[in-house]
Every structure is written in structure tokens, then in C-alpha cells.
Amino acid sequence: MLSALLVTGLAACATQATAPAVPGDTALGPVLVDAKRMTLYTFDRDNAMPGKSVCNGPCATNWPPLVANAGDMAKGDWTIITRDDGSKQWAYKGKPLYGWVKDTKPGETTGDGFLNGAWHVAKP
């Protein structure tokens, strides 16, 4: 029992110490992907308000934010922003990160260039 608790505690610490996304390969080259290996994206309109996401409501339904969990800590190029609803979201080099509901399997990049080129794959 004690060893199981110790292993669980060590796994939680290791999770908090790792980056929230990793590089993955796509037809567009290397991109950042989430834990499910799904492509992550950035939104040009977020640039108007650094450290803030302007993708809320229906936008966030289609472009789900990369959620930062309680206990996650910013480090290096990785920061955590607070969304309008109070939830936390990961950002890389100051750019909030999102998934795209129309990507259905790892390696897809169907959101790149969406909305007159405002959405882009997140590059490592």
C-alpha cells in the first residue's frame, strides 16, 4: 500500500515537471502536440492582448484550450494564463495553445490557415 502511494506521488511530481506539449511530426513538419498526440494551434488575434486568450465561448468549443491543471507550474518558454472564465491555459512563448475539433487523429493539421489565416500550427 505504501509503495503504491509512493509511486503515485512520484508520478504526479513527474507529470508536473514535464512540458504540457511535445514536438510531433506532421505533413507541415514538426509541431507541438498534446498528450493524445493531437496538433496544437495558436491564434493571431491573441497577439492583440499578450498573456490573454480572446478565444472564448463558441470559439473555445471549436478550439479547446490546452488546459493547465491545478499544481502545474510555468517554466522556461511555458507560461500559464487565466482565461475569462477563470480556468487556466498553457501558452508557449507567450502564445495560448489550442486543439481543433476537426482534427480527428494524430498528425492532422486541418486547422492551419483557418479563418483567413488566423490559426496556425504551433511550432516548437
Rank of each mutant, 00 (worst) to 15 (best):
A17G: 06
I80D: 09
N62L: 12
A12S: 08
W78A: 07
Y98E: 02
L32F: 04
K95R: 15
M1L: 14
G57K: 06
G51M: 03
K52P: 00
N56D: 07
P30K: 15
P30T: 12
T42N: 07
V31G: 07
G111K: 00
N56T: 13
L40F: 13
S87I: 03
K52G: 02
P23D: 05
M1D: 11
A74N: 01
T109W: 04
K93Y: 08
G51K: 00
G86K: 14
V54N: 11
D46G: 11
K75T: 06
D34M: 00
L32K: 02
G76I: 05
A91Q: 02
L66N: 01
I80T: 03
V54Q: 09
P124V: 05
D34G: 12
I80C: 09
T110K: 15
P50V: 08
D77Y: 07
A122S: 08
G94S: 08
N56G: 03
G113T: 03
C55W: 13
G51W: 00
D85W: 04
L66R: 00
P65H: 02
C13D: 03
A19P: 07
P58F: 13
W90S: 00
L40V: 08
T8H: 10
D112M: 09
L5C: 14
G99K: 07
F43K: 00
G9H: 08
D85N: 15
V121G: 09
D25S: 13
W119M: 01
E108H: 11
A122F: 10
T42S: 08
